[in-house]
Computed example of a mutant assay.
Amino acid sequence: MHKLILLTLAAAGTFLLATGALVATGLHDQLAQADMIVVPGNTIAPDGRPSPRLQARLDVALKQFRERRSPRLFVSGGTGKEGFDEAASMASYLRKQGVPDSAIIEDNQGWTTEATARNAATYLRSHGLQTAMVATQYFHVPRFRLALERAGIAVSGNVHAPYFELRDLYSVPRETVAYAVYYTKP
């Protein structure tokens, strides 16, 4: 019984350390030049606009675009349960913020983090480009970087959306588990 308690405490301690490392990494922005900024999709509001969480991702990516860290914004997502094409909604939001069509790449096949990474890599390779910057929630940054790197993309930097909500209490530990699964995946 004593060994079981020690093992349980060790597992819990390891999980807490990993979660702390994930959060610290995600909150540490790395500003750099990139061929494109990749923004993964998320919930669309009932009126078809990006949810506040997704808008925060777009706004942080838009800031990097306006500061000329990248000439392109790659917005990726699928059609969520709300019935809206996430990529189209994201692109529409960016256009309303003054981003020209020529700077927006829409990927409506980004159903998962892995699919977004694969699609971004395909786009980069087909256009002779190499680097990407990540723009997402802080807890998603490490796994998204890993997915992009595994897809063959040189990730030059990352920024996190300054948006925090009660849901993060679920999302952060979930992301710790998801990162471990991605990391151990062949």
Rank of each mutant, 00 (worst) to 15 (best):
A45V: 02
W111E: 13
Q30I: 11
H28Q: 14
V39E: 12
V134E: 07
A21W: 14
A11Q: 08
A132N: 05
L9Y: 09
D35R: 02
E67N: 12
G83S: 15
L129F: 01
V39R: 10
R118M: 11
Q109V: 02
Y179G: 02
S92F: 13
P142D: 03
L129D: 09
Y170N: 14
E175S: 05
F84V: 14
V134T: 01
A161M: 04
N42I: 07
K96S: 13
V159Y: 13
V159A: 05
V181S: 07
S126T: 08
S92Y: 13
R118N: 09
V172T: 00
T136D: 04
S76M: 03
G48P: 08
G26N: 09
L58P: 11
G83K: 11
Y179S: 02
L94D: 06
Y182D: 15
P100L: 10
P40H: 01
A24D: 03
E149R: 09
A88W: 07
H140I: 04
R69F: 07
A32L: 00
G98I: 04
R57C: 10
K3I: 15
E175L: 02
Q33K: 09
V172I: 15
M133H: 10
A24S: 01
F164K: 05
A161N: 00
F144E: 14
G152P: 03
T176M: 04
A88T: 13
F139A: 06
V134A: 03
L17H: 07
R125E: 11
Q137N: 14
A32V: 02
S92G: 13
T136Q: 07
V23S: 03
R125G: 01
G80K: 11
Q30F: 01
D85A: 12
D29G: 01
D107T: 00
P142Q: 12
L146M: 15
Y123Q: 07
V159E: 05
Y182Q: 12
V60D: 09
